[in-house]
Write a protein that binds this DNA or RNA. Sequence first.
DNA 1: ACAGCGATACTACAGCTGTAGAAGGAAGGG
DNA 2: CCCTTCCTTCTACAGCTGTAGTATCGCTGT
Lengths: 204, 204
Amino acid sequence: MSDRTDLLADAAIHVVATHGMRGLTHRAVDARAGVPQGSTSAYFRTRKALVEGLVRRLADVETADIDATRLTSQTSDGPPDLDRVAAGVAALLDHWLGAGRDRSLARFACLLEATHHPELRTILAYGDRPRAQARELVAALGSTDPERDGHDLVSFVDGLLFYRLAGGGAAHAPAPGTPESLAELHRAALAALTGVLARRSPAR
Amino acid sequence: MSDRTDLLADAAIHVVATHGMRGLTHRAVDARAGVPQGSTSAYFRTRKALVEGLVRRLADVETADIDATRLTSQTSDGPPDLDRVAAGVAALLDHWLGAGRDRSLARFACLLEATHHPELRTILAYGDRPRAQARELVAALGSTDPERDGHDLVSFVDGLLFYRLAGGGAAHAPAPGTPESLAELHRAALAALTGVLARRSPAR
DNA sequence: ACAGCGATACTACAGCTGTAGAAGGAAGGG
DNA sequence: CCCTTCCTTCTACAGCTGTAGTATCGCTGT
């Protein structure tokens, strides 16, 4: 994929994050990317192609993000520890809420879209990386059924993310990037992990 | 609100569920509702009004749903029991995945939309009923901080719902309405409750 | 220098969408 | 019986969107 393609796809992600799928038009992307009108239309001849390009880019960037955050082997000395894992999850969540906010919003929008466009779904699975990591994580923490527990963990974490992005009031939502946010997310992540792993040990 | 308005709003909900926010046009609603072209445009003069009508209807119907499912005092004899509460949550989830699927999808789409339209957010809070119930629930189960725990519970449950509607593969997803589905959801709900309440008792 | 070529930029146009206003028609009061 | 009033249906139209075709530019190798 060329340089221009990525630039446009990134602009498209921002457009979706700020104006929703409805706002995603060739011209809006041109405007956002600061390129002459018609460029997006030239690179992505149809709207379907544009959406697919956007999703593909999303998958690329977020997969890299996830890989960069080695949750388990982070400072690989010592045995896996619930608290440390929760801190890792919290850091990732904080990133998705702060710097990665646009991408998170775009991702949720695309997931919804994927409901009636199965081909998007497979791209948005991110090569199974999130779930693989979740499995790895719960397995390391002693899960008796990593497949199921990993699945649950991902769903809880995504729920947390969605809820803070678009759901509840701002009651329990300190600004991302701050220590308070990290502490809050750490607590919530711990709750998620605890619930998921409850059938192994009665938790701390 | 008149009879016609509700009919149109319901059609709009279905349109959003099947074609996304992007597919929500006056004419698409006309078609879906089986009314002559122009009707929707007459009842909801602008698109903004249409979306607001849709959201208001969503709030009405779903609030009724929630109120109908008295999770706590359901067969109010006996003390509140984690397992029984989980069963109640599972029943609600199953309803949202099955009969209420369209409404759930529309709700998520609107929540995303509400990110840049705050006035929708307040309507979609459903008069705080879901969170109030969650608070009530965790309080009855002995939470030391019902506000926070209720918040977490709602986010976990919504995550579960989103994930099964639009997220993961069909691995752990039996058809709604079946006993398997209820059992699966019961298990997941129990995990959510356990995690949220972990700091009170080390759970069953 | 220049022909060829790929990448980029521009333009055209058909169809869709949002919106408003006019026309038609049933219900109720006098 | 007719007039008024409200509800419903129809029509018009401006602007936006998706798409494809044409023009322009800059580089490459010869």
